[in-house]
């Protein structure tokens, strides 16, 4: 179950988005300009790594949701659970 996030605060989110878009466009642009076949795998195609980047973040977000669902322990106070010694 995907928990709803609080409304995204402003702050540097916009600035980071700008930088990421510029990096993406610049990277993709130069990749397509310098396209020198043959490539050794599908991911090494121009644009392949951008797709990889998207895929990684999507998978990580899903994994994070799943892990938080399955593996969360509620912290009591500020410490770990008492040890069995």
């Amino acid at each position: 179950m995907i928990k709803p996030a609080p409304p995204p605060k402003r702050g540097i989110a916009a600035m980071m988005l700008l930088f990421c878009v510029v990096a993406l466009v610049a990277g993709l642009g130069f990749e397509f300009l310098n396209d020198t076949p043959p490539r050794f795998s599908v991911v090494a195609q121009p644009g392949g790594r951008a797709v990889l980047g998207v895929g990684v973040v999507v998978i990580l977000v899903l994994l994070a949701h799943g892990m938080r669902l399955l593996l969360t322990t509620r912290e009591r106070g500020s410490g770990d659970a008492a040890d069995h010694t």
Binding site: K3, L17, L24, A26, L28, G48, V61, H65
Partner: peptide, 28 residues
């Protein structure tokens, strides 16, 4: 030919995470 794909990689990852957060899909 090394720098460009790396920039694309990081840029795509950043855009995706920011979009996920904007769409409230990322874990809070």
């Amino acid at each position: 030919d090394r720098l460009a794909p790396h920039l694309a990689l990081l840029g795509a990852a950043g855009v995706t995470l920011l979009a996920a957060r904007a769409l409230r899909l990322a874990p809070a």
